[in-house]
Every structure is written in structure tokens, then in C-alpha cells.
Design a protein around this nucleic acid. Structure first.
Lengths: 151, 151
DNA sequence: CATAAAAACTAGTAAAACGATAGGCTTAGT
DNA sequence: ACTAAGCCTATCGTTTTACTAGTTTTTATG
């Protein structure tokens, strides 16, 4: 399961991506809109800033805004940055590979073979889904339900 | 990341599946062979028994053995039983679905759309991979490396 | 029937992770 | 100078993780 922190991070980024202008958004505004505890969100945004996805402006009229285009930020990057590796086993992680201490031969580890497939499938999806993709998917879905409603 | 408990469970089941006869195996033997803390393994085997995958025999010459055929036990079942749902979000779980408290419209949740795909991909793999599949994959891999070695 | 070897059961525990919260510090418009 | 914002460090209660300890029950065997 994803942690709250990661979920909040993605929700916040999607919300920021949704606004057309790149003007600063108050933490408190974002917190309220997305029902995220304000102080917790503060830390999360700081992390996302350190990851290069957001910029911020201090002082009056300050706030947070996307530093990259929505199409440049993938869900995979967000999850990796906040939650950690996508892989379910350290020994199949692309970004944080670590050998199992007691594994005599990685090539012959059944667990590894299976969970390597899972990791590949997961990263194929998450690394190819950007904030923009998410937005358009939601919009399409919205139009469809709207259409259904009008039949 | 999978917990140690889940990893141990899968390793133990693979080890038990590997023996041709269904004779009882001592916890201590299994623990040593797979380098799993004995007392911890004890609890895990108890869980797997409760899940119907293992049987046990008490007293002298007792031990654990598979109750089902290796092809009847999938990695998905094991992970779900020990770790919990495969899904990364409660709201896309097949086995433990739960609505997000603050979600105005599930159909229009971007997170949900993306992580539903991830869950589908994951369960497609894990629910279609049995202990038998794992064993044969390892054997094939073994023969391949062996072949490479002899060139 | 006594013994010993095994699983079954009940508790407990240290360390880490999770999900926040508190409060002071710094920066920048007006 | 004032004030509204983000920045930074610390802390906290709870839950989960990964075990460990000790006792009880079952069962084959001498």
C-alpha cells in the first residue's frame, strides 16, 4: 500500500498541474482543497521541491508552483522519490538494487524471477504516465460519464 | 517492498514444494536450510496452515508438508494471505476494497485510474504464477546457465 | 507408562515507520 | 517596521515489523 505521504504528494501535484497558470499557490489553500493536513503537506512540498518538481516563492504572495511541465513529471518519479523503489524486492529494484545477503545465486532465485516481472509491469505503467496523462484520462472519463448521463 | 514475513513464507513454500514426497519436514530443518529464524518461521507456517496451504503433524517425526499441489498455490494467494492486498490503494483492491473517505467521485480520481492499471498488471502476474511455475522457471533458468557454461 | 521430540500457543519486546503536530526562523512584499 | 508567507528542526503517539521466550500439548517409541 502507498503511504498517505505519497498519496498526498500525487494529489498535490495533480492539483497544481490542473491550474493553467504557474502562479504560486498557498500551502493552506492546497491543503484545504485536497483535504491534506497543512503542516504535513508543508513537509511533502518541501520534498517535492528538493526533487526538482516544484518551485516556491517565499514571503507575501508566495506559494508553490510546478517547476516542470505536467508531461515531464511521471507518477513513477513521484512514487520513487517519496515512497521508495517500485520493486517489491530490493534485489529487483532498478534504482536501489541491493543483493540479498543470503542468496546463493540470484539467477536461480524463484522469488526474484517472479517479482522482476512485477516490477517491470509496474514501472512500465508508472514511468510512462505523466501528470498530463493523468489529467487527460480523468477528463476523458468525465466526458464519458457525462455522456452516459445524457442518454 | 514485501515484508520479511512474506518473503520467508514464499521461500518456505517453494522449499516444501521442491521435495517430491509429501513427508513432514521439521521446522528447524526448514529454518536452517532457508536461513529463516526458527521461531519466526514457526508463526509463519502456522499462518500458512490456517490458510489451508500446509498441513502438519505433531509429536515425534512431525513437521510440515504441503496440503495442496504446487500448481494449486499461487504467489498471489500467498502475498494476499500474509502481506495483504496486492493493490497499492485500498480503493482499487479486489479483495479488500474500501472507499476513500474524502473522494468526491471515484470515477474521476486520477490516482485511482492509474493504480487500478498497476493492480491489474500485478495480479495478472501473481495470480497466474503457481509454485509449480516458479519451480519450472528456476529449472529452465538453471539449464540455460549450465548450457552457457559449457559453450 | 515414561520419555523425548516435535508442533501449538501465548506473550512480550526493541526498533523502525507512519502520520502527523509544534514552534521558532527566514524571506519578501507593502 | 509589519506581516504574510515558506523554511527548518524537533517531537510525539500509534502501529507495524521482526523477532524471541517460555510454556503447553501431542505423539511416536523404548
Amino acid at each position: 500500500m502507498l503511504s498517505m505521504k505519497t498519496r498526498y504528494a500525487i494529489k498535490a501535484l495533480i492539483a497544481l498541474a490542473r491550474k493553467s497558470e504557474r502562479t504560486p499557490v498557498l500551502i493552506s489553500a492546497l491543503a484545504e482543497q485536497e483535504s491534506i493536513p497543512k503542516k504535513f503537506l508543508e513537509l511533502i512540498l518541501l520534498d517535492l521541491k528538493a526533487m526538482g518538481m516544484l518551485s516556491s516563492k517565499q514571503g507575501k504572495h508566495g506559494g508553490y508552483f510546478l517547476r516542470l511541465e505536467p508531461k515531464q513529471i511521471t507518477i513513477g518519479q513521484i512514487v520513487r522519490g517519496i515512497e521508495g523503489p517500485l520493486a517489491l524486492l530490493q534485489c529487483v529494484s532498478q534504482t536501489r538494487y541491493e543483493r540479498c545477503s543470503d542468496c546463493p545465486d540470484e539467477k536461480l532465485c524463484g522469488l526474484r524471477l517472479v517479482f522482476k516481472d512485477v516490477r517491470d509491469a509496474t514501472s512500465k505503467i508508472l514511468d510512462n504516465t505523466s501528470l498530463e496523462d493523468v489529467m487527460t484520462r480523468v477528463d476523458v472519463e468525465g466526458r464519458n460519464t457525462d455522456l452516459m448521463f445524457h442518454i
